[in-house]
Write a protein that binds this DNA or RNA. Structure first.
Lengths: 225, 225
DNA sequence: CGTCGACGACGAGCACACGCATAGGGGCCT
DNA sequence: AGGCCCCTATGCGTGTGCTCGTCGTCGACG
């Protein structure tokens, strides 16, 4: 169980290292945000304990950056005063849990085990394919900076494609994912909706994100067209 | 140290009772939400372990009800699948901590001690979505500076929406959260209440906080409209 | 290099189910 | 007894999903 501790308070960091190692964790320590980010990128941790207040890059940004780079390592955020830190905000940044200082060590361990056990869940938050952004939770889509309105079916289909960027997906796969596993209508419907999608996310922007592979299926270009 | 365990899984409840008593807790057990609520009202516990999925009144509602009655007994929420339960939502309902099943017993004990030690906290939580303010504890709502009067159902529904600002919530989700997990009546009821809400928090202010997404559900604009 | 076949693109039209609106009855509490 | 709230029931408009027929285009093969 590998853990990265990012905290600038040297004494606290040290006692965390000792304590966690006694609990059987393998611990790395960084004393500022830059180092923390670097270590997090280079290694594969089971969890990261991240202080919010840091010299250089603060914990908030570190977390945000990792998530933006598709790194979903579980993060336990440490916050100094509960007043100025909004829990919701913390979790929204992409942290998996938070703890308010001062905290008791057993609680930290318990929480750490909990977030690590849950593991790096892949986040549904936002799919990015080139300059195409799909947010399944909010059911919103952007091409670059402009938002695009899609109907339920259109969205469902784009979301499916966006989950397989650069891959060829057959008509059958699309039918099963977007319609039903035992869909037996006219497969033509897929072509119709591909067209609708192209009219909304490609044509107005003079781009070509959805490619046709004759006899094989469709492919969403991973560079977004 | 008195603890109330509310869980419908009889075997789990029993082993929790045995384990916690071995740890020195005095344990009461309820097997459904109704009993749990009743026991919580009648007695003065140091903490409550509350399962989310319950027959009768679900854990979500139990928690909400207690808080509405100004009962701040620390609550540790147990959630079945981490997928369908949003941690933020759990904490905002008024729970003090949460634990995802399956969990290890020592972790449960540690967390339980932690929330109990912290004690009955005074309630801060207020949900803010744009200029819309929802106070789940006090059951009050403001649009800007003017307070809005809502009925129980209306409030429950708005609170749910406010816990997912900017996200689409399906009619099914709303039914499960606001009504019951196994609600089987006419989903039309959701539309009716959406209308009521709009009449109270949107129309008088010439705003549009609740959006309709055909075939998908509803969305509370995160800027409040 | 030309022809033919198959697959996909396209446009328009139709049906329907989804969501909106409103009214009214039943139950609970005061 | 009255009022309030919750839910059911029904009609209505419209956006959405889907069907269908035709046209265009790619690719294979002689």
């Amino acid at each position: 169980m590998r853990v990265l501790v990012v905290d600038d308070e040297v004494r606290l960091a040290r006692s965390l290292r000792v304590g966690l190692e006694a609990e059987g964790f393998a611990v790395d320590v960084a004393n500022d945000g830059t180092d923390g980010l670097w270590l997090a990128r280079e290694n594969d941790y089971d969890a990261i304990v991240l202080d919010l207040m840091l010299p250089g890059i603060n914990g908030y940004k570190v977390c945000e950056t990792l998530r933006a780079e598709q790194d979903w390592t579980p993060i336990l955020m440490l916050t100094a005063k509960d007043g100025e830190w909004d829990q919701v905000e913390g979790l929204d940044t992409g942290a998996d849990d938070y703890l308010t200082k001062p905290f008791s060590f057993p609680v930290l361990v318990a929480r750490l085990r909990a977030v690590a056990r849950r593991g790096a869940r892949e986040r549904p938050t936002e799919l990015r394919v080139g300059d195409l952004r799909v947010d399944p939770a909010a059911r919103r889509v952007w091409r670059g900076e402009t938002e695009v309105e899609l109907t339920a079916r259109e969205f469902s289909m784009l979301a499916f494609l966006a989950r397989h960027p650069g891959d060829v997906v057959s008509k059958r796969q699309i039918l099963e994912a977007v319609w039903d596993v035992d869909f037996d209508g006219d497969p033509n419907i897929v072509e119709v909706y591909v067209r609708h999608l192209r009219n909304k996310i490609d044509r107005p922007f003079g781009r070509q994100a959805i490619e046709t592979l004759r006899g094989a299926g469709y492919r969403l270009r991973s560079d977004g067209g």
